[in-house]
Nucleic acid binder design. Structure first.
Lengths: 225, 225
DNA sequence: CTCATCAAGTCATCTGATGATTTGATGAGT
DNA sequence: ACTCATCAAATCATCAGATGACTTGATGAG
């Protein structure tokens, strides 16, 4: 069941380059050897080198500048971080995402415009219940509400991080529970909107915390079995 | 300052393929058209198609099987979000990490053991000042203190995420500021330890928030120039 | 000293070809 | 009718060579 990964020149080349970067032999910002040189050093064709470089570019480790060269953009491997976060249990993933929810709500409270509150109310109205449109659509609409709050925080890093967790948690739920997860009711959502509109960040944070707590404890019970 | 992304055939092809997958036109598990067909449909050479496919393979969206074809492996892309987190500005990164600091401190307050408090005090004592051991070592020891708090939260996902952020922020600081960042004083650190020991999560969260706020505003001023 | 011009270096892309692997069809043997 | 070895087609993997586009530093005129 483990084919021991039959050698794949491109993958081997990718790993060689990654090792050079992560090992620090090529420092961040430095220009790496050109394609012809890498082709020689790795004993593969230039096309293979290009594919390997492209893979690392898409992971954010390298950056190519036409006419200039290829440079190390970062020595942090996002795929490694992803793997480790994935290994965390669903409970921890959920709690970490909740942390983002809480802090995002606080920031949203401090930075929101009046139009944002209207938008939240509209999303809440559209959200409806599980009955309309099936479980799957419901989850999507519910998510739209929470993402809107995170977007209101005005913090791009948090938005991206929230997306990351949303995807990771969806995967984990699919893998461990088969897809179903309890959802608080609409009145709870309305309390969050009110708290944000009130301009009191502590109140908004508490509202989100209170909102998520039952889900977390239900998750604990579920996983305890 | 915004090159508006000069067209890059491989990137365009990558985005086209990604759109097909994320848009659901190619369902998970399905085989996508072969390289020659994609080359025709996208009006690029086969080599360019291969580079685009390789990028998506490295992101986990596609999977190639020699002799058989290329298949859709997943329609969600968690890594991409992490890659984008690194592209966010330093201010947003710092604020997001602070969110983790605050929530981790809250959890640490609720879950810590007496020995943990001793450990924090010990780390604080070892931390010393910039004077002993140089700027670089100081940052390391300071980081050990903050990481210890996150570890006390008992949440593996948050620990991993914090590590990721720590590395990402260090790189961003190096890239944008050249390495220096103001650090609050030891007394502020002691207040955090006291708050955690007190068992009041609100107090602990506020302590961390108060601790980070000056750094953030200093960052704002610095970036405003 | 300034600035336009130019040439070398480098990545981007294309074309054509060959090898390795998988997969389904074929056909003999039972 | 079933099983199994064999084979051919489809497909990805890799290579080699060539041309275009872009960046950068050097050159030289003003």
């Amino acid at each position: 069941m483990q084919p021991a990964s039959r050698t794949n020149l491109t993958d081997s080349a990718t790993e060689s380059l990654r090792a050079e970067i992560l090992g620090g032999r090529w420092s961040v910002g430095a220009r790496i050897p050109n394609e012809a040189a890498l082709s020689d050093q790795l004993s593969v064709s230039r096309g293979t080198v290009r594919e390997a470089v492209r893979a690392l570019v898409s992971q954010g480790l390298l950056e190519t500048r036409q006419g200039s060269g290829t440079y190390v953009r970062s020595a942090i491997d996002p795929t490694a971080a992803l793997v480790r976060v994935r290994r965390a249990c669903l409970r921890d993933q959920w709690e970490a995402r909740t942390a983002l929810d809480v802090e995002a709500a606080r920031l949203a409270t401090l930075r929101h415009a009046p139009a944002d509150i209207e938008r939240l109310n509209r999303l809440l109205a559209e959200r409806g219940t599980v009955a309309d449109g099936g479980q799957n659509n419901f989850v999507c609409r519910d998510l739209a509400f929470h993402k809107a709050i995170v977007a209101m925080s005005g913090n791009r890093a948090m938005v991206e991080l929230y997306d990351f967790f949303t995807a990771a948690i969806a995967e984990t739920i699919q893998a461990t529970l088969g897809g179903d997860l309890p959802e608080p009711d609409a009145p709870m959502h309305a309390q969050i909107v009110e708290a944000i509109a009130s301009g009191d960040p502590d109140r908004a944070g508490d509202a989100v915390r209170a909102f998520m707590a039952p889900v977390l404890s239900q998750l604990d019970r579920h996983l305890a079995q």
